[in-house]
Design a protein around this nucleic acid. Sequence first.
DNA 1: TCTGGGGTCCTAGGACCC
DNA 2: TCTGGGGTCCTAGGACCC
Length: 416
Amino acid sequence: MGRLIFHIDVNSAYLSWEAVYRLQHGEQVDLREIPSVVGGDEASRHGIVLTKSIPAKKYNIKTGETLFNARVKCPELVIVPPRYWLYMQSSAAMYEILQGYTPQIQRFSIDESFLDFSNMEHLYPDYLELANTIRERIKNELGFTVNIGISNNKLLAKVASDLKKPDRIHTLFPQEIKEKMWPLPVEDLFMVGRASTEKLNRLNIFTIGDLANYDINILKSRLKSYGTMIWNYANGIENSEVRKSNYIEMKGMGNSTTIAFDVEDRETAHKVLLSLCETIGMRLRDSHNSCRVISVSIRGSDLISYSHQRRLDVATDSTRKITEAVWSLFDSAWKGNKIRHLGVHVTELGSNDFYQSYLLDDFNYEKDRAVNEAIDKIRLKYGSRAIMRSCFLNSGLSSMCGGVGEEGYPLMTSML
DNA sequence: TCTGGGGTCCTAGGACCC
DNA sequence: TCTGGGGTCCTAGGACCC
């Protein structure tokens, strides 16, 4: 009667999807078989590794590092640009297949899902056979490979899918923890990142097993609630539900961009922020949300970030109101340094199913709402560039920055 | 022209209240 | 001239995930 959880993870997702697309369009080489990466555009200062092929990994190329660095490690490295609409499509196609097996699916990211097969022995008597069927179907029908991790909770299933790649199925049941998980380096554990690894190493903790057998009270005092959580994880203790994605409410949304050049004046910064607000406003209205808290973040050319946020008296979904708040936050926050990156985030979301007629100011909410609605309709029908504010003409800036534009945005979480 | 963009959650410290 | 203490709200910053 125990739980049975699958974690399905696409191998080198962006790169695999790109490789399949290219093969389908007549290209001879398979990107997955040579040192290659999907990387951002260096000219506009987005030059980092988004996904690497397995041969590229052999050169010690890491996700997130600069393309400049990656080329130093491997001069013949093939770099291809990202194609986000393709990733959305590929992800959706895989989800279609998975849905045929159980409705209990949590889309964890664009290329990862948890499936709950608890109490379904009557339908699927042999879970290994089931996993194999799913793996084969994705490979045959969609052309890319996945790893499947199997256990009785999400944490262990996730660690299992990460074991040996590609195109593999692994189990990691509680009785296998000692043999399969404890020898791994502690940074392989979910939620143990760079900062925690350093702290743990200083405590002489180097493997997941070291962590599992450490005194929990010392961890608690050094790492607070994190200490308890990762100690539990190291012992395979985790009991969160597989949450169907449509029932997960969004907590906040953000839009940020690295600008192709350093911004040095307030007017240009305001324009970039406006374009970010346009996208945020539209996404808020599209999801029937309003926000109470608005925040602006600034990253300077020195790569140091800072932010200011403000709680509004009344929730809003108006592009105009958001922009006013964002501009004033920027003006109070900006230290006058050269700006590389700007971001707008909204949190404390709530329903926008009400008309806000706030009598204390003379802002015409009805008219503003009608304007936003009309613009949203035009953009949904004809694309985000169909209508724009005149200040963006000949400015070299996009009128609607960030976001995923017309392709939509699947609801995903990165917390178990 | 060396460092992305989308998220979630936690903590520390100050203001303020009783 | 000995400066409480608990609670809540708010902001800034940092950790982690993909």
